[in-house]
Simulated scan of single mutants.
Amino acid sequence: MAYMYQWLDVPWGDGDMGSWADRSPLHEAACQGRLLALKTLLSQGHNPNIITIDHVTPLHEACLGDHVACARALIEAGANVKATTIDGVTPLFNACSTGSFTCTEVLLEHGAKPQAEACQPSPIHEASSKGRAACIESLISWGADVDYDIPHLGTPLYIACVSQQLQCTQKLLDGGANVQKGRFMDTPLHAAAQKDCPDIIRLLLEFGANINARNLEQQRPVETAPPSSTAESALLLYEAMPQSLCQLCRLSIRNYMGRSRLHLIPHLKLPTLLKSFLQYR
Rank of each mutant, 00 (worst) to 15 (best):
E232R: 11
D199H: 02
L166A: 04
H190E: 08
C197V: 03
A177S: 09
E206D: 14
D174Y: 08
F184Y: 13
N212W: 00
Q218N: 09
Q167G: 07
H190R: 08
R202A: 11
G175E: 07
S233G: 00
D199Q: 05
V222E: 01
Q165M: 15
S228K: 11
Q164I: 10
I211D: 03
I201E: 05
R183H: 12
G208D: 04
N178Y: 12
S233H: 03
I211R: 01
N178I: 04
Q180C: 10
D174S: 07
Q218K: 12
P188C: 07
P226K: 06
D174H: 06
F207E: 15
D174G: 01
G175M: 08
C168M: 11
R202V: 13
I201D: 05
A192D: 04
S229T: 09
D196G: 01
G208T: 08
Q219V: 03
Q194K: 15
A209N: 06
G182S: 11
Q167L: 13
K181I: 03
E206K: 15
L166D: 03
L204W: 09
G208N: 07
I200L: 06
P198G: 01
L203Y: 12
G176P: 10
L189Q: 03
N212T: 02
S233F: 05
K195E: 12
A177K: 10
S228N: 13
A231D: 12
P226S: 14
A213N: 00
C168W: 09
Q194W: 11
L173E: 11
K195W: 13
C197Y: 03
A193M: 06
K171D: 01
L189T: 12
L172M: 13
P226L: 09
D174C: 05
L205H: 14
L166S: 03
D186N: 14
R214G: 00
K171L: 02
V179N: 15
D186V: 06
E206F: 05
L172P: 07
K195F: 08
L216R: 14
S233V: 02
C168I: 06
Q167F: 05
I200A: 13
Q219I: 00
L173F: 11
A209R: 14
A193H: 13
E217T: 05
Q167R: 13
G182L: 09
